[in-house]
Simulated assay, not measured.
Amino acid sequence: MHYDFVPISERKPLKWPNGKRLAIILTTNFEYWDAVRESPKMFYPGGPSIVGGDLPGNVYDNPNYTWREYGQRIGVWRMFDVFDAEGVPSSCTVNAKMMLERPQVIHAALERKWELIAHNYVQTDLLTDNMFDEAAEREVIRSTLKVYEDFCGFKSKGWLSSSLRSTLNTVDILAEEGVLFTCDLLNDDQPYMVRTRSGKPMVSVSYTSEVNDFTVFMRQGNTVNGGIDVFKEQFDWLYAESAASGRFMNIGLHPHVIGQPFRIRALRDFIRYAKQFDDVWFATREEIASWYANNHASHVATGKQ
């Protein structure tokens, strides 16, 4: 993997299709966690916990497991209701075990023709566990992509690593496995091309750890109104900048966090706010990546991709 350092001051204006200025990506993460593992090693939960204190992998952590499962049983359906009522799509990430263990959620997204992006095999495993074993990392990626294709009937065009913990080999492996875009690189408000050792195209369409319900509500402790303020502040500044060159804005959403009754209004009210702007594009990452792969030369000069 290699990408050139091209600051935004050295790029040409980015012009989205159909005169749009700001692309909005509402990312809903469909994630499954194992209740226990065979190993007595400390169990990495794959996200913040609601009750502190780490337990060994072979000890069941009831409050944290069932809190996360609330998102699968209740929270995600509340989110579906909001998206349906407001008439906007979500770009969804999904790990392989979520497809195997909670298929009703994935079928609901497929029925809505929403985007699904491969998101590791299970939330509690990290690609960085295989930092020094590329063959093992490739097997995790291949196994994930196979479950995805078997379940959906088509191949995943994108990838988000669990907890964003990718390795220096991940992008190269993904390109060789036929994936078009990665969400792991958190360093931009615009897409860009990543060079791969195979020469196959790879587009970065960044996820975010900042405008993310984990960060906004759990780490920063915002109320629902405080969360709305964060989302709107991000939107307003990017929208102003997009008058000169297009931007995208991503919000990372987790059903067990934003899907709580006392937080869901933040999602609904932000969508209603953004819908007031005719030149905002509620986009999928695949739409952005496919378009950019064909049009990046008009944005970043050859040799600076």
Rank of each mutant, 00 (worst) to 15 (best):
N169D: 13
N169R: 12
T170S: 13
V171P: 03
V171C: 01
D172S: 01
D172I: 00
D172R: 00
I173A: 02
I173K: 01
A175W: 01
A175K: 01
E176K: 08
E176A: 08
E176F: 01
E177T: 03
E177S: 06
E177D: 06
G178R: 10
V179Y: 05
L180S: 02
L180P: 04
F181H: 09
F181M: 10
F181Q: 05
T182W: 01
D184C: 08
D184W: 01
D184N: 09
L185N: 04
L185E: 08
L185R: 13
D188C: 11
D189K: 08
D189W: 00
D189N: 14
D189I: 08
Q190M: 09
Q190D: 07
P191G: 05
P191C: 07
Y192S: 03
Y192M: 04
Y192A: 07
Y192H: 09
M193L: 10
M193F: 06
V194E: 04
V194P: 00
R195W: 06
R195H: 15
T196G: 06
T196W: 02
T196H: 05
R197A: 14
G199H: 09
V203E: 03
S204P: 02
S204V: 12
V205N: 04
V205A: 07
Y207W: 02
T208C: 01
S209P: 01
S209L: 11
S209C: 10
S209K: 15
E210D: 13
E210R: 01
E210H: 00
E210P: 00
V211G: 00
N212S: 11
D213N: 12
D213F: 12
F214E: 13
F214I: 12
T215S: 14
T215M: 14
T215E: 12
V216L: 06
F217A: 11
F217N: 09
R219I: 14
R219A: 15
Q220H: 11
Q220W: 13
Q220M: 15
Q220E: 14
G221T: 12
N222I: 02
N222G: 05
T223D: 14
T223S: 15
V224H: 05
G226L: 11
G227P: 07
G227D: 03
I228F: 13
D229K: 15
D229C: 08
D229I: 08
V230W: 03
K232C: 10
K232E: 12
K232G: 06
K232V: 14
E233D: 12
E233W: 13
E233G: 13
E233R: 15
Q234E: 13
F235W: 02
D236T: 06
W237P: 00
L238C: 07
L238Q: 05
L238K: 05
L238E: 04
L238W: 00
A240W: 06
E241I: 01
E241K: 14
S242W: 04
S242Q: 04
S242A: 15
S242L: 04
A243D: 10
A243T: 10
S245P: 02
G246V: 02
G246A: 11
G246T: 08
